[in-house]
Amino acid sequence: MSVIKKVIVGLLIYLVFLLVLFPANVAVRFAPLPSDVMISGVSGSIWSGNIETLKVQQRQVEQVHWELSPWALLTGKIKVDLQVGSRATAVSGKGLITLSPSGISAQGLRFDAPDSFLIGNAKLPFRTEIQGEVSLLVENLEQGKPWCEQLSGKLFLNQTNVKNQFGNYPLGNIELGLSCVEGRVQLATDETKNQLGIKGTLQLDEGNTVKVAAKIKETNDQPEDMRKSLSMLGKRGADGYFPLEYQGRIPGM
Results as ranks from 00 to 15, higher is better:
residue 2 S to E: 05
residue 8 I to L: 15
residue 9 V to T: 05
residue 12 L to F: 13
residue 14 Y to A: 11
residue 15 L to F: 15
residue 15 L to R: 07
residue 17 F to D: 06
residue 19 L to A: 14
residue 20 V to I: 14
residue 21 L to G: 09
residue 21 L to V: 05
residue 25 N to D: 14
residue 25 N to G: 12
residue 26 V to F: 04
residue 28 V to L: 15
residue 32 P to Q: 13
residue 32 P to N: 12
residue 34 P to F: 15
residue 38 M to S: 13
residue 45 S to W: 12
residue 46 I to H: 07
residue 47 W to K: 03
residue 47 W to G: 10
residue 50 N to Q: 13
residue 53 T to D: 04
residue 53 T to C: 02
residue 56 V to K: 02
residue 61 V to W: 11
residue 62 E to D: 08
residue 66 W to N: 13
residue 66 W to Q: 15
residue 69 S to T: 09
residue 71 W to T: 07
residue 73 L to V: 04
residue 73 L to W: 04
residue 74 L to E: 14
residue 75 T to C: 11
residue 79 K to H: 14
residue 79 K to E: 15
residue 82 L to E: 13
residue 85 G to P: 05
residue 86 S to W: 11
residue 87 R to K: 02
residue 89 T to E: 07
residue 89 T to D: 10
residue 90 A to C: 05
residue 90 A to L: 15
residue 93 G to P: 02
residue 96 L to P: 00
residue 97 I to A: 11
residue 101 P to M: 14
residue 102 S to V: 10
residue 102 S to Y: 03
residue 105 S to C: 10
residue 107 Q to F: 00
residue 109 L to C: 05
residue 110 R to K: 12
residue 111 F to C: 10
residue 117 F to H: 07
residue 117 F to N: 11
residue 118 L to R: 03
residue 119 I to H: 02
residue 120 G to R: 03
residue 121 N to Q: 14
residue 124 L to H: 08
residue 125 P to Q: 09
residue 126 F to Y: 15
residue 129 E to F: 10
residue 132 G to S: 07
residue 134 V to G: 04
residue 138 V to G: 09
residue 138 V to M: 12
residue 139 E to P: 09
residue 139 E to N: 08
residue 140 N to S: 09
residue 140 N to A: 08
residue 140 N to Q: 11
residue 142 E to T: 00
residue 142 E to L: 07
residue 144 G to R: 06
residue 151 L to S: 00
residue 151 L to A: 00
residue 152 S to I: 03
residue 153 G to D: 13
residue 160 T to R: 13
residue 162 V to D: 02
residue 162 V to Y: 05
residue 163 K to N: 15
residue 163 K to T: 13
residue 164 N to R: 01
residue 165 Q to Y: 05
residue 170 P to Y: 09
residue 173 N to L: 12
residue 173 N to Y: 02
residue 174 I to F: 02
residue 175 E to A: 12
residue 178 L to H: 10
residue 178 L to I: 01
residue 182 E to M: 06
residue 182 E to P: 04
residue 183 G to L: 07
residue 186 Q to C: 02
residue 189 T to C: 03
residue 190 D to Q: 01
residue 192 T to I: 00
residue 193 K to P: 06
residue 196 L to F: 05
residue 197 G to C: 09
residue 198 I to Q: 06
residue 200 G to I: 10
residue 202 L to C: 13
residue 205 D to T: 03
residue 206 E to I: 11
residue 210 V to N: 07
residue 211 K to L: 14
residue 212 V to T: 05
residue 212 V to F: 11
residue 214 A to G: 00
residue 218 E to L: 07
residue 220 N to Y: 10
residue 221 D to K: 12
residue 224 E to N: 01
residue 224 E to P: 00
residue 225 D to Q: 03
residue 225 D to L: 05
residue 230 L to Y: 01
residue 233 L to R: 10
residue 236 R to E: 11
residue 236 R to G: 09
residue 237 G to L: 10
residue 237 G to Y: 09
residue 239 D to A: 11
residue 240 G to L: 08
residue 243 P to R: 01
residue 244 L to I: 06
residue 246 Y to V: 04
residue 247 Q to S: 01
residue 247 Q to L: 10
residue 247 Q to E: 11
residue 247 Q to K: 08
residue 250 I to G: 06
residue 250 I to P: 03
residue 251 P to G: 08
